Simulated scan of single mutants.
Amino acid sequence: MKRVPFTYEERNVKREANFLAHVDASGGKTIAKDVMPRTYKTLPKFLSMAEIKSLLTAAENPHHRMMMRLALYTGLRREEIAAFPLVYVFDPDKAGKTDRNLRIRLDPFDGSGMVTKGRKQRDIHVSRRFMSDLYRYVTKVRGERASLSKSPQKALFLNKSGEPYGDSGKSLNRIISQTGKQAGIKVHAHMLRHTYATQTLVSLQRNPASGLEPLVFVQRQLGHSSIQTTMVYLHLVNEMANEAVLAYDDELNALAEAV
Rank of each mutant, 00 (worst) to 15 (best):
D123N: 15
R77K: 14
N101H: 12
F130L: 08
V89E: 08
E80L: 13
R142F: 05
Y137R: 03
I81R: 01
L102H: 05
K160S: 15
R145G: 06
D110L: 07
T98M: 07
G75T: 10
K140Q: 15
P85L: 03
I81Q: 09
V141S: 04
T139D: 07
Y137A: 02
K117M: 11
R105Q: 07
K160W: 09
G118I: 01
M131G: 03
V138F: 11
V89Y: 05
V87H: 07
R119G: 00
F157W: 03
R128M: 04
V115H: 14
F84L: 04
S147L: 06
R78L: 13
P152W: 01
D91V: 04
S112C: 12
G113M: 09
R105G: 00
D99V: 09
L102S: 02
R122C: 05
D91C: 06
P108G: 00
R103L: 11
K117I: 12
L148P: 06
F130D: 11
D123P: 00
L156V: 11
K150E: 11
Y137N: 01
A146Q: 09
N101S: 08
E163P: 01
G143L: 13
L106K: 01
S149Y: 08
G111M: 05
E163G: 08
L156E: 04
S161D: 15
D133E: 15
V89S: 02
G118R: 13
F84S: 08
L106F: 05
Y88N: 15
V141W: 05
F109S: 09
S149A: 15
A82E: 05
A83V: 04
F84I: 03
S149Q: 08
R100Q: 13
M131S: 01
I104E: 05
L134R: 02
P152F: 00
G162Q: 11
P108C: 11
A83C: 00
N159G: 07
G113A: 11
K97V: 13
G113D: 12
Y88H: 14
V87E: 14
K150T: 11
L158P: 02
G75P: 07
Y88G: 01
K154T: 00
K140F: 03
I81E: 00
L134W: 02
P85D: 07
A146T: 08
L158K: 09
V126I: 15
G143K: 15
L76H: 09
M131H: 02
R129T: 09
R122Q: 13
P108W: 05
S112M: 02
I124L: 10
I124V: 08
P152G: 10
K154E: 09
E79K: 14
R77A: 09
R103T: 14
L106G: 13
A83Q: 03
N159Q: 12
T74N: 08
P85H: 01
P108T: 04
F90P: 01
A82P: 04
K94N: 12
